[in-house]
Simulated assay, not measured.
Amino acid sequence: MSERSESPLGDDTDHADAVAGLTQLGLSTYEAKVFVGLHALGTGSAGEVAEVTDVPRSQVYGAAEGLEELGLIDVQAGTPTRYRPLPVSEARYLLFERMKEAGDTAFDYVDSVAGTHADDDDSGEAVWRTDGGENVAQRAAAMVDAAERQLTYGAADVSRIGDAVLTALSEADARGVDVRVASADPAVRAAATDTGVTAVGLAETATPDLSNGRVLVADERAVLLSVLPGAVPHVSTETAFWSDDTAFARILVTLIGEWFAEHLET
């Protein structure tokens, strides 16, 4: 047996993160640890793998069988049986492709059943809520992507107009949507201008009334409003309320449009 490290793998955060990442790609925890251990060894027996990992020797065999079925290791019969891992580049490609295929299959099915049992009258679900800055940004970007004629995007500060939203705004502008970004913050307007999108100013005194977080109105039918922690009691993260193609949304779009008309700098 070759010389081993005094401490088994698994004593640091990077190792734990790698194992967690492999489990998200479909491996069991033991399979992930054995796979990492085999790469540390190059080749190894169950006993050697157990030495450099915290996987019991009795569990190494089952994990190795699973890895073999997935095509991630080669097995050499003998006494003892020895294992060799698939090179990292090949394993990466194999796992990513399988994950993509599984995702495609799942979402194709979801798409095929979408709406098959929907209630034609869903007016009771007119207003939706999204929590968390990243989730709010993704929802805002999706609403920008769906805009066909015109939209206004308002943000209190540059942290509320990140890459996902800027990309969506730029693409909307490129396909002919009348896009404008409104803010009292020069950094927000500069970010919009840098992507070729029209930016307009808001009076500083108007900002707290509406732009605690961000606001989006599109095509006179869709609206999103968000608030930040501290602006509303018991809110611990950015929270957005949005509605699309409802009577509520159209009324709110009109009110926000009037507000913008009053407070936009000329």
Rank of each mutant, 00 (worst) to 15 (best):
A261G: 13
A231P: 06
V34W: 12
T246E: 05
G115M: 02
V165N: 04
A16T: 13
E3Y: 13
H39V: 02
E48F: 12
G37H: 07
E262A: 15
D194P: 06
S45Y: 13
A32F: 12
M99N: 10
A32R: 08
S45K: 07
W259Y: 14
T205G: 15
K100C: 03
T198I: 04
T152Y: 00
A187D: 13
E258G: 10
G133T: 10
W242M: 01
R221Q: 12
A199K: 04
P8E: 11
A247M: 04
S211K: 05
E6D: 13
L228Y: 12
R98N: 10
G62F: 02
V227L: 10
T81D: 03
D178Q: 10
E97G: 02
P208W: 05
R82F: 01
W259M: 08
D194Q: 13
G124L: 09
L9P: 11
L38F: 09
T198C: 02
S226T: 13
E6N: 11
T130V: 15
L25I: 10
A64L: 05
G103K: 09
E51V: 15
D14F: 14
G71I: 01
L202S: 01
G176L: 06
V75N: 04
P87L: 09
T237M: 10
I73K: 04
E69Q: 11
V144E: 02
T130M: 13
D14Y: 12
A126K: 01
G26E: 13
A247G: 10
G115E: 05
V19R: 12
Y83R: 05
D245Y: 00
G37T: 08
R82D: 05
V55M: 08
A172T: 06
D178Y: 01
G26S: 12
D12Q: 14
R180L: 02
E48T: 13
V215N: 02
A249M: 01
Y83I: 05
L252W: 10
P56K: 08
A63M: 04
L169E: 00
A16M: 11
G66E: 07
D108N: 15
Y30R: 15
P208Q: 06
L225T: 08
L210D: 07
E262L: 14
H263F: 13
V34E: 08
E97Y: 00
T239Q: 04
L252V: 11
E69G: 07
D119E: 10
S170K: 11
G44E: 08
L228T: 15
G154V: 01
G66P: 08
V49Y: 07
G47W: 13
V253I: 01
A168I: 00
P186S: 00
S58F: 04
T105E: 14
K33Y: 01
G10K: 09
A249L: 04
A46K: 14
L151R: 02
L95Y: 07
I251Q: 13
A168S: 14
V34F: 10
V179L: 03
F35G: 06
V200K: 02
T79G: 03
Y83V: 06
D119H: 02
A141H: 08
S7R: 15
M99D: 10
D74E: 15
Y93S: 09
H39Y: 06
S5G: 07
L67H: 05
D119N: 03
T254I: 00
A114P: 00
